[in-house]
Design a protein around this nucleic acid. Structure first.
Lengths: 218, 218, 218, 218
DNA sequence: AATGAATGAGGCTTCATTCAT
DNA sequence: TATGAATGAAGCCTCATTCAT
């Protein structure tokens, strides 16, 4: 028991260090020696836990995405209305980025442009997340909360893209500040939902009280 | 003269090759030997034109951005209405990406996450472009075409972010196709402008015929 | 006792695994982790039995050579005639190689070219074996069965070299097959003994019934 | 011209150094830094000429085998009689080993036990050499100079094996001396040819004056 | 102006080996 | 006795970059 826990701890230690190093320097410029120094572990030990440098990189988002995913699933069950759900998802995601700056940087600035990452187990977790978003959007379109004359993929892209753009700038330029960033979620989401919404004011989904939470999980 | 022209040609040759190589392999995995092979120029010669590898990378978007910028400026002069202008900018930008896939990849997938690129002359061109967008947005807010209860930076982010997200996916996943991508511009812009718009239907800027083209350049 | 036996068993286990690994991959390319996996023993445990990797390698032939040596000694006592004895030695040796392919590979392909192996206890066993061969040859020369105008070392070299060459090819190329290899012993030995023989046909050693078995051991 | 020559010189320089290093330390224990030091060339430069360490190793015998092969071909044309030819081949080969101790060590102690070497261009040169030997042996069997009740492969193995064994001992033990080694060629060959010979004394090939040199080349 | 040739620098990775349990 | 875990040491190899021609 204690052995396995220790191992798990060590792994997390290394992953955190790696996230920090790669977030600061980028993947290629961040070296294994850097990660070793940062984590207080020998270089060789890193290879006990991760088969190679790229595998280390790809392992960074796994845990974190897991946690985020669970949190989102949990909250979605408590919320009625697709617009509200969409807002919740984006809000939680943004919050997560703010609270885990290094992970955010690794995901947004490094992994997003790595083609090999697409074939990764970690990327599957991301795809699952995207599916959740899709479900919410499609539900919203069906029940009339969202415009149904738009490709749902486009709706998703607009929402996520806006957020990612802001996050990327926040990471790269340090602007806006964390507080501003959080304050912006609402107006941004409002604008998005408005652009994406059906035009009649919110809460108009006649069936929304019937949507059982399990739907979201599908 | 002929000497200078030849030099300029060679430079372009190298830049194109570099764009292709970096677009395919990424910056670190694309090597100077690769660029040399692709361009048919010796490695050593590359250093005659570019002081080092990063400088080569940073030089890639210059020309192209220049051309795009000029084209946008030209078109903006012919268009009235902030919404229309915004649409034009985004459309031209998207068109540019589609027609210059390698440049798009270098800009969107590589340069965007390079902090040192921020201090670059090439990045200034980008900032100038952003200012143009800002100007259009602010004008639109002033004359009531756009909501004025939103941070203009947020409006810009929403517009650019949506587009960049779609472009990134197009580059990384090959999805959507070029044609789809182009077809999507309009609905996407509509949604954006609607979300960002003042609510009363378009074309309502009473002063838009007064906006003199030169304003935009400022 | 049981403890000691267990220890001995474990050692043999490891040695066999090591022989297999080194035979397949060579000494440097075969790793301690490989041996650990193959033997079902932990890496650390290997070091309980063998002080280091080279010592493990050098220990491989000991047991086996011991067994071979005993078998040869036993048979030699039953045979009269130097030519017959020589034939027996070579035959038994060849048989041993065929029946212990991994050991053969380790000895012929790895240890033979290791200078440090020369200083080993295991190598002493080999030298003792060579002395047995020498004794037989010298006896054969004395009693007129073998040519006495040739350096005995040369005779030995010719016999052993021929055999080793064939064995090496068998190990490296898988050619000839085990059966062919065994069938070849006789003609090869005939040729050798003929080349090495005194010319008058065999069995002509007038004193051979006087050779007492103990001589051979010396 | 001068450029190519210089390149070729450099390559030879490196190969000689590599032969020396590997002969002394073995392949794995001899390092690229060692070769660099020995050859007075930088490590990186070695990789300009040889794609990797193993390729460097495999390239060592090429030149040398080439030279030996040519010399043998040349001499064979001048010699009548299969036995004499066989003797010549073995003698020249032995001489070559003595005059190129490092190459001999690399070939006999390192390459001979490397399975990947078998797929090498350099190994083809060796196979060609073996074919020459085979041809001589088969010719000798046909015209009655050699026993025809033995597998020719076995005859070849006996001859080469004897020689290689002696050479290996010479390399490993420094015994016999170069002079002794040379002096032994004749008696050894006599014994071999005698063992392998048809029994009637030499020179009995009735057609041997008809054998045209070209035969050998086939 | 153009390049073939050479190399310094440094990263990733692998193991043999140790040690605490 | 047995081993999981940790690491020091070191080698291969790759490139960006320089320089003589």
């Amino acid at each position: 028991m204690t052995g396995k826990e220790k191992t798990e701890l060590r792994k997390t230690q290394i992953l955190q260090a790696a996230a920090k190093v790669f977030a600061e320097k980028g993947f290629q410029e961040g070296t294994i020696p850097d990660v070793a120094k940062e984590s207080g572990v020998s270089e060789a030990s890193i290879y006990e836990y991760f088969s190679n440098k790229e595998n280390l990189l790809f392992s960074i988002p796994m845990e974190a995405m897991q946690r985020l995913s669970e949190k989102i699933d949990f909250h979605l069950k408590l919320i009625r209305g697709s617009a509200e759900k969409l807002r919740a998802i984006l809000y939680l995601q943004l919050l997560f980025y703010i609270e885990n700056r290094d992970y955010a940087a690794v995901i947004m600035l490094i992994l997003k442009q790595n083609r090999r990452f697409l074939d990764t187990e970690a990327h599957q977790a991301i795809r699952k997340h995207l599916k959740t978003v899709d479900k919410v959007i499609r539900d919203g379109m069906e029940c009339g909360e969202f415009r149904n004359d738009m490709d749902p993929y486009l709706i998703r892209s607009t929402c996520l893209g806006s957020m990612e753009h802001v996050v990327t700038n926040w990471l790269m330029l340090g602007h806006p500040t964390d507080e501003e960033l959080l304050k912006w979620v609402d107006p941004m989401l409002n604008a998005l939902v408005r652009g994406v919404g059906a035009g009649n004011e919110l809460n108009q989904c006649p069936l929304k009280h019937l949507i059982v939470p399990e739907d979201v999980e599908a």
